[in-house]
Amino acid sequence: MKLTLQQLKVFATIARYGNLGLAANELCLSKGAVSQSLQELERQLATPLFDRIHPRLQLNNEGRLLQPAAEELLTRMQDIETLFSPDAEPSGQLRLGASQTIGNYLLPTLLASSQQELGLPPRVTITNT
């Protein structure tokens, strides 16, 4: 079984709207592509996820079981994309080492002026060289 993120995204969008056409519009896909993706997901899981009540699709018990897991996975995927996007906030830890003189007299002023630019809490070690 090879589920894809795209299948889960299609499933979650259909579950949100209860309609293939509205889901297709949000995903910028054709209605046929959305339908095919859902059919493949249901085939791989060997169970229907919706009750078809024309013109709507209503989550059945199996669909309600899948929905929270799919939403969580999609949220985590979005978090990863955001974390590594070019305009993401810096993350990590800044580690600095300094001798006694530099660490005690110059480093505090430098850190204070650059703290707002970096946005990272520094970790400083001051020892003799």
Rank of each mutant, 00 (worst) to 15 (best):
R64A: 12
T109M: 08
Q116H: 10
P55I: 09
A24G: 04
Y105I: 12
L38H: 01
Q39S: 09
T75E: 01
T129W: 14
E71T: 05
I102Q: 12
L74V: 00
T101F: 07
R123V: 13
T47N: 00
Q67L: 15
N61H: 10
A88Q: 13
D87G: 08
L120V: 07
Q115G: 04
N61L: 14
V10I: 12
P48K: 04
P108E: 00
L22E: 14
L106F: 15
L49Y: 06
F11V: 07
R95N: 13
K31Q: 14
M1V: 04
V10A: 10
M1F: 03
E89F: 12
Y17C: 02
K31E: 14
K2F: 05
L106G: 07
N128M: 11
S30P: 03
Q39G: 06
E72W: 11
M77R: 09
V34A: 14
E62Y: 09
E71K: 10
L66T: 04
I14C: 12
R43P: 14
C28R: 11
A70F: 06
K2M: 11
Y17H: 15
P90K: 12
Q39K: 13
R64D: 00
Q6E: 15
K2G: 06
E71C: 14
T82I: 05
E26Q: 14
S113E: 15
L66R: 00
T75D: 04
K31V: 15
N60H: 01
G119D: 13
G63K: 07
Q78N: 00
L38D: 06
V10E: 13
F50V: 08
L96Y: 12
A98K: 03
Q67V: 15
Q100F: 08
Q7T: 12
R64M: 02
P122L: 04
F50K: 06
P86R: 02
N128S: 15
D51V: 13
P90A: 04
T47E: 01
Q115C: 12
L111Y: 00
D79N: 12
L27V: 00
P121H: 11
Q39H: 13
I53V: 07
P108M: 02
T125G: 12
V34P: 09
Q36Y: 08
Q36K: 09
Q36F: 08
N19Q: 04
Y105S: 05
L74A: 02
L20Y: 15
L65E: 04
Q7M: 13
N25F: 09
I14N: 04
L41I: 05
G103S: 01
A88T: 10
L106D: 07
S85F: 09
Q58M: 06
L49T: 04
Y17R: 11
Q100D: 08
H54D: 10
A15W: 06
A46P: 02
P90H: 05
F11I: 09
G92Y: 10
L8W: 05
L29A: 02
Q7L: 03
K9I: 06
L41S: 05
G32K: 03
A112C: 11
Q58D: 00
T125A: 15
A23L: 05
R56Y: 09
L83I: 13
L111R: 05
E62D: 12
L49D: 07
E26V: 12
L29Q: 03
A70E: 03
P90L: 07
S99T: 01
T82D: 13
